[in-house]
């Protein structure tokens, strides 16, 4: 496996605030990584450092380039959707395509036009005349027509309704992703993307709490729904989190084998959201 992104001791300070605090990780080619964290956890700052939009301390290499110093070269191979609102309101759909075509060496205009034909977005319309969902469709059509090695999505579906969100991720998986491409997503709506992720990273207060593949996650973390005497015994194994549900105890274990737990009750793979909450609580303890 080749590393697409290598971060080693990366930090970013804003005065006394450590937005990103000495983090190290690798992202390998052909993965879909979800970067999950509460507001102000440092997600966006970390993405901006990866994209060369902000300077940071430590060693950071993206596609073998220094993002901040070689941003132009990097942007030929990276695509980035920050938020639905970033397309300029005055631009016409056709002008946006004209501009990207002139600027981007890896953009295929016919592909973008093909994708736009599947939507209600008209080439002559201005961005300010489009609905929020249509603006995202436009941006995604542009992005998907760029042959990029890494796609970075920062809260791409913020403010969109559920239909658009589902369609957005379906398009991304079916029409875009292949083993040559890598996707990095941050979002609040973890449950919507957890099925499409191959890797996951939790970030809080600028630190990485968890960095794992989804496969490993299912082996390392196990949830048991139990009650009564079994609950007492299970508690003895030191769950990382416990919650009450329908009169039963739901306990989350880390690194305890499945065989060990099977006798106590119903075994489940925890949802990313539950795991996230447990990890955050653990970190705050």
């Amino acid at each position: 496996m080749t590393s697409l992104v290598t971060a080693s001791g990366v930090s970013k300070h804003f005065g006394a605030v450590r937005a990103v605090d000495n983090v190290s990780f690798d992202i390998e080619k052909g993965r879909i990584l979800g970067l999950i964290g509460p507001n102000g956890a440092g997600k966006t700052t970390l993405l901006k450092a990866l994209l060369g939009l902000t300077e940071c301390d430590g060693d950071l290499s993206v596609l073998g380039l220094d993002p901040f110093r070689q941003r132009k070269k990097l942007m030929q191979q990276i695509c980035f959707i920050a938020d639905v609102a970033v397309l300029p309101r005055w631009i016409k759909v056709s002008q946006a395509l004209d501009f990207v075509e002139a600027i981007h060496p890896n953009f295929t205009r016919s592909r973008a036009e093909e994708l736009l034909k599947q939507t209600k977005v008209q080439p002559g319309a201005k961005v300010k005349e489009l609905s929020k969902g249509m603006v995202t469709q436009l941006h995604l059509s542009i992005i998907m027509a760029i042959d990029a090695k890494l796609l970075v999505l920062d809260e791409p579906t913020l403010g969109l309704d559920i239909l658009f969100r589902k369609e957005f991720y379906a398009n991304l998986l079916n029409d875009y992703f292949d083993e040559e491409r890598t996707i990095l997503i941050t979002t609040h709506q973890v449950e919507e993307i957890e099925n499409l992720l191959t890797d996951i990273m939790f970030i809080n207060d600028g630190k990485i709490l968890l960095d794992s593949t989804m496969d490993e996650l299912g082996e390392t973390y196990i949830e048991v729904m139990t009650s009564g005497e079994n609950a007492q015994k299970a508690r003895g194994l030191g769950p990382v989190a416990e919650a009450e549900m329908f009169g039963k105890s739901v306990m989350l274990f880390e690194g305890v084998s499945r065989e060990h737990l099977e006798g106590f009750g119903e075994i489940r793979i925890p949802s990313v959201a539950d795991l996230f909450v447990a990890k955050i609580k653990e970190a705050r303890r």
Partner: peptide, 17 residues
Amino acid sequence: AERKDKSILFWRSLPVT
């Protein structure tokens, strides 16, 4: 204007210095 409407993020996501 590009900072006010945040389109700077779009412009800077393209390979232009």
